[in-house]
Simulated assay, not measured.
Amino acid sequence: MSTNQLSQAPSVDRKEHQAAGPLVKVVRLHFADPMRLLGVPLTIFASTTAVCVVVMLLIRAFVPGDSAEFSEGFRYNQAPLWCFAGYFVSVGAFAYARTMPFAMGMGATRRQYWAGTAIALVVESVYIGASMTIFLALEKVTGHWFSGTHMFDVYVMGNGSFRDIFLMGFGISMFTLFAGTMFASVFVRWNQKGVLLVVFGIVAVALLLAWVLLSLGVDVVSFFSVDIVARIAVGMIVLGLLSAAGSWLVLRRAPVGR
């Protein structure tokens, strides 16, 4: 190995280390408060399950009928689909406002901050998918929470499929978290007017897309008639990735600390 190669190798290693350092720091910054991203979702799942169990017990105690029919009716429960979505939109929306100035103060560039935030949110999405899968396993083991209550073993989450509930948990998290960050980046750069314009733009594009599909005779219903839960989950993941890309396009020129 020549003298020049020996002299260049350490500098390359230092550059790679310096580039990776801020990414790790940004990820750690988002998880600095474990309760916000790790504890609160579990609390939401547990408390929503407890409410559903209480509702089921009240129905069985005061409504005449077959308990098996009541339990089967709970398969239409949509609580796991909505119980944490709003919270995660707010988490994504506040992610930039709470951490961006600190990350810049630690020497991270906008690109490094965006990439570190994206990694943190993907990790969080995997965590939610895994958590919902574990809750589903517990629900099955306990005979639906010892009361016939269906919370995670429901139609909208895959009807007891571990694969589908993981994909749904991951997909909902990806979509809501990255949608929140996208709107947060728009607000940081253009304030409320920018958010309103983006909302109107998204609605207009969605309506235009629907018109094009209907005009071309595309049968969207038949596409989702097979493996519907998994395909909806994949669709939400795609929307989450598009939101992540949109947040970067806006964030790269956004002011810090607005």
Rank of each mutant, 00 (worst) to 15 (best):
S2Q: 08
T3K: 15
N4D: 15
N4H: 12
Q5M: 11
S7M: 15
Q8V: 12
R14I: 11
R14F: 07
K15M: 12
E16Y: 14
L23K: 04
M35P: 00
M35V: 10
A46T: 13
S47A: 15
V51K: 00
V51E: 04
L57A: 14
V63A: 13
V63G: 05
D66E: 10
D66P: 01
S67T: 10
E69Y: 14
E72Q: 15
G73C: 08
F74I: 03
Q78N: 14
A79E: 09
F84T: 07
A85W: 11
A85K: 09
G86C: 11
V89W: 10
S90I: 15
G92A: 09
F94V: 14
F94W: 12
Y96S: 08
A97T: 12
R98Y: 10
M100L: 15
M100T: 03
P101F: 10
A103H: 00
M104G: 12
M106H: 01
G107P: 08
A108L: 05
T109W: 02
R111Q: 11
Q112R: 05
Y113G: 04
W114F: 14
W114P: 03
A115D: 01
A118Q: 07
I119A: 04
V123F: 06
E124I: 14
Y127V: 04
A130M: 15
T133H: 02
L136C: 07
S147V: 03
H150C: 02
F152C: 07
F152M: 14
F152G: 02
N159T: 05
G160I: 00
S161T: 09
A179L: 14
G180L: 00
F187A: 15
N191R: 13
V195E: 01
V195P: 02
F200S: 10
I202R: 03
L207C: 07
S215Y: 06
G217H: 05
F224T: 10
V226K: 12
I228V: 06
A230N: 10
I232L: 12
A233M: 03
M236S: 03
I237T: 05
L239S: 04
L242R: 00
A244V: 04
S247P: 02
W248A: 01
R253C: 03
P255K: 03
P255H: 03
V256Q: 01
V256M: 00
R258Q: 07
